[in-house]
Simulated assay, not measured.
Amino acid sequence: MAKDIEVGGDGSEFHAKDYHDPPPSPLIDAEELTKWSFYRAIIAEFIATLLFLYITVLTVIGYKSQTDPAKNADACGGVGILGIAWAFGGMIFILVYCTAGISGGHINPAVTFGLFLARKVSLVRAVLYMAAQCLGAICGCGLVKAFQKAYYNRYGGGANELADGYSKGTGLGAEIIGTFVLVYTVFSATDPKRNARDSHVPVLAPLPIGFAVFMVHLATIPVTGTGINPARSFGAAVIYNQDKAWDDQWIFWVGPLIGAAIAAFYHQYILRASAAKALGSFRSNSNI
């Protein structure tokens, strides 16, 4: 248990709310497999990712339909890129709010990977979360195709593809930086030390996370369509199943995983603690 001591403007001291970091999660925790709460969390991740893909892919397809020149539609009609970004950011806000107390509200293999590297979740939980997220994304896109098959195929199925005129290196860089912004925000918004220190400033953690998704989409939709979530890109590629989506798929896995790893290292080992202290902690718990 530790305490922060703050100094007021008049020189007086006051004690901020106590805080403590939870112990690092064990690398392998077989005991989790015996708990219903663990399976409930996996189900929550599956359903949340399904709903995320269902709403967001429908928004993308609806926008393309509303602006289709072949239908003499208004090129400036529909929700626009701004509306698509709001759909992704808004859904993340809603779903993280709903599932944070059950599964942690990851809804993204890159987020799960970053939290695993920071020893916030065990390897068993991380692997099963990622599997549930990918399966949920496939099912969410499958529902969209089942309801609007003609539109789904005609307007690209919401699949992430590198836009014309951009190199693969540019797309990879966009995914790395975009995911770094998201995962860094996740760490900052859920940091127990920060929440204790700034307890007089209430912050609803899903809000900054949703805004991070929104802002990244504004920046990278023209480049890659914005992945920053391997499950989102994988689920759309599986159901759409076209060569271009599969050829570019590696960008939407390698980029987010690298970005998440950098964010985890930056927050945990630079902002929160010295590298030496962090390494010592990792070694002391590696055999748990």
Rank of each mutant, 00 (worst) to 15 (best):
F93A: 15
G80F: 01
A75H: 10
G142S: 11
V111I: 15
A150F: 05
S122C: 04
Y155T: 07
Q133L: 07
K64F: 13
C76T: 12
N108V: 03
I102V: 14
Q133D: 12
R154F: 06
L95A: 12
A100K: 09
A87P: 09
V96G: 10
K120S: 07
K64P: 02
F116D: 11
A70W: 09
F116C: 12
P109C: 08
L128D: 08
V79E: 02
G114F: 09
L143D: 05
W86P: 00
C76Q: 14
C141E: 04
Y155F: 15
G80R: 07
V124H: 10
Y129N: 15
Y155S: 02
G140I: 10
N108I: 01
A137V: 03
G90F: 11
T99L: 04
A75K: 12
G78F: 08
N153R: 14
A118C: 00
P69L: 13
L135W: 04
M91S: 01
V111Q: 04
K71W: 10
C98W: 01
C76M: 13
Q148V: 05
F147E: 09
G142Y: 08
S65P: 00
D68N: 15
Y151F: 08
L128H: 07
H106E: 06
G83N: 01
D68W: 13
N72F: 15
G156A: 13
V79P: 00
A131W: 11
G142Q: 12
F113K: 13
G101K: 03
A132S: 13
R119M: 06
G77W: 09
K64A: 14
G140P: 11
G83P: 03
R119D: 09
S65K: 11
C134F: 06
A73P: 07
A70C: 05
G77L: 09
L143Y: 05
G156F: 15
G157L: 09
G80N: 05
A87K: 00
V127Y: 03
V111T: 06
G105Q: 13
G142N: 12
A126W: 05
C141T: 12
G114L: 10
K71L: 15
R125M: 07
G101V: 01
D74T: 06
V127H: 05
P109L: 08
A132M: 08
G101T: 03
W86R: 03
V79S: 12
S122P: 01
A146Q: 12
Y152V: 10
A87V: 01
Y97Q: 14
L143A: 09
S65L: 08
G78N: 10
N108C: 04
C141S: 10
N108K: 06
Q133I: 11
G140V: 11
K64V: 06
T99H: 01
G157S: 12
K149L: 08
I92D: 00
G104V: 06
A137W: 03
Y152N: 15
F116I: 10
